[in-house]
């Protein structure tokens, strides 16, 4: 059985990789298996984890789970066209509740912490240390400050990017693009390691060519 699973995994891996050549019947088969199997897998997982694992088992202890179950039930009213509009209520609840819940978290992590991390003495290693920083640190500090400043200016939408403001925004988009370039290279390398992982599976686990 283990042998069969190994061969099946190799067959499916090669099927997916065959897409690099062109769309073909092998890829179509593999794609259909992947999509169908994963959809089924997620259905079963969500059913047992959420409906059974959380609601069915926990409903006795936590009465608030009935609220979630009720909202879920309202979603199913879409199946009855006449009252299908009621299914918008749970949707509204999810969107509204999520916005409220995340507001403070996003404000803290995306604004407060970022601003705090950008405020530092330009010419010293830490606050109160005087002017003790080396040239490399000073350059690094200036890059962070100017990069953040100009990058933020680019994201102003209510003022036209003209004149000095426009030039600043242009510097900002350059900073962003350079960052993207660095990020691109870094991520490509990590994707290469994923690809090497699959090749390693084929050559060592399946073919036994690498011991």
């Amino acid at each position: 059985m283990e042998h069969f699973a190994l061969w099946l995994a190799a067959f499916l891996t090669l099927g997916i990789i065959s897409f690099l050549y062109k769309d073909n019947a092998w890829y179509k088969l593999t794609e259909a298996i992947f999509v169908g199997l994963s959809a089924g897998y997620w259905f079963v997982t969500l059913f047992w984890d959420n409906f059974y694992g959380k609601f069915w088992i926990g409903k006795g202890e936590h009465a608030y789970l009935y609220v979630g179950a009720f909202l879920g039930l309202l979603m199913l009213l879409r199946l009855i066209p006449k009252i299908g509009w009621i299914s918008r209520w749970p949707l509204s609840f999810i969107v509204g509740a999520t916005s409220g819940l995340w507001l403070i978290n996003y404000f803290s992590s995306n604004i407060m912490k970022q601003v705090q991390a950008t405020i530092f003495p330009l010419f010293s290693s830490q606050y109160g240390a005087g002017f003790d920083a080396g040239a490399a640190t000073v350059i690094g500090n200036l890059v962070i400050f100017l990069g953040t400043f100009t990058g933020l200016v680019y994201f102003f939408f209510s003022k036209e990017h003209k004149g000095a403001f426009g030039y600043t925004a242009k510097v900002g988009i350059w900073v962003i693009m350079i960052t993207f370039g660095a990020s691109f290279g870094y991520t490509v390398m990590s994707r290469m390691s994923l690809f090497i992982g699959r090749i390693d599976f084929l050559l060592s686990d399946w073919l036994g060519m690498i011991l």
């Binding site: 950008t118 405020i119 530092f120 606050y127 109160g128 400050f145 400043f149 003022k159």
Partner: peptide, 30 residues
């Protein structure tokens, strides 16, 4: 956008205050 403007101002003021060792401004955003 106004919020972003306030943040930019805070960053500039904070950097000046901390560079010249006047006040640890970044504490306000902790």
């Amino acid at each position: 956008d106004i919020g972003k403007g306030i943040m930019l101002a805070a960053i500039v003021i904070g950097i000046i205050l901390e560079t010249f060792n006047i006040w640890n401004f970044s504490r306000l955003f902790s």
